[in-house]
């Protein structure tokens, strides 16, 4: 049998990245400021976690404008959804293992 640890994704070890993925799974897209407010983290912190997720191909970034202000929105990719769900399964197995 597969070791449950194998299905846990290292990328989601960080609380912030886990939070971003949770938010994106239930919201079609969300902008940087709303995300920052929800997760209560600093600009720099959030930005580095977001670029990490982007590099892994788990989220898509869309840069746009509202008036003259930049408005960057994020959404989850198919790969991201799959990876996150596998991670959830892994967590579930860890808890089941306790019994």
């Amino acid at each position: 049998m597969k070791n449950p640890i194998d299905s846990l994704n290292k990328v989601f070890d960080s609380r912030v990245r886990l939070g971003v993925m949770s938010v994106l799974l239930v919201n079609e897209e969300i902008n940087f400021n709303d995300l920052k407010e929800l997760l209560q983290v600093t600009d720099g912190n959030l930005a580095s976690h977001l670029s990490n997720l982007e590099e892994n191909g788990y989220i898509k970034v869309k840069k746009g404008f509202i008036g003259r202000k930049t408005n960057t929105t994020y959404s989850i990719t198919k790969a991201g959804e799959k990876a996150f769900k596998e991670h959830l399964g892994g967590l579930e197995n860890m808890i089941k293992g306790a019994k």
Binding site: F12, R15, L18, G19, S22, V23, L25, V26, N27, I30, L38, L39, L88, L91, E92, M94, I95
Partner: peptide
Amino acid sequence: SLEALQDIKKMMERSS
């Protein structure tokens, strides 16, 4: 693991 799942649930709820 349990804590992570609770975190996920909280974020999903809070954001939607």
